[in-house]
C-alpha cells in the first residue's frame, strides 16, 4: 500500500479511488461551479460562501432527486408497460 501511494504522480497519473467513489465528486464539482457562478449574480459578497454552500446543496439534492426519479422510472414504471 505504501509503495502504491508513493508511486502515484499527481497531475500525471489519474487517481485510483475515483472508480469506486466517483459520484461523491458532485460535491467539489458543484462547489467550483458555484464559486464561478455566484460572483456574477451577486452585487455584494458578504454572503458569498453561504450562497456557494446553498448552491452546492441545491445541485447535490437535485442530482440525487433525478437519480431517484430515473430509478423509479426504470425499475417500477417501465416494467408495467405491455411487452408488445
Amino acid at each position: 500500500m505504501m509503495s502504491l501511494t508513493l508511486a502515484w504522480t499527481p497531475f500525471l497519473e489519474p487517481v485510483g479511488w475515483v472508480h469506486t467513489w466517483w459520484y461523491l465528486l458532485i460535491v467539489p464539482l458543484s462547489f467550483g461551479l458555484g464559486m464561478m457562478y455566484k460572483p456574477m449574480r451577486m452585487s455584494r459578497f458578504d454572503r458569498y460562501w453561504r450562497e456557494v454552500g446553498i448552491f452546492v446543496g441545491q445541485v447535490t439534492l437535485g442530482v440525487i432527486a433525478m437519480g431517484i426519479a430515473l430509478a423509479v422510472l426504470t425499475e417500477f414504471v417501465l416494467p408495467l408497460l405491455p411487452a408488445e
Binding site: P14, V18, P28, G32, L33, M36, Y37, P39, F45
Partner: peptide
C-alpha cells in the same frame, strides 16, 4: 472569486 473557482475546477480535473 471567479478565478479561484475556475482554477479549483481546472486543477481538480487535472488531479483526478
Amino acid at each position: 472569486r471567479i478565478m479561484a473557482g475556475a482554477l479549483f475546477l481546472i486543477f481538480s480535473g487535472l488531479l483526478i
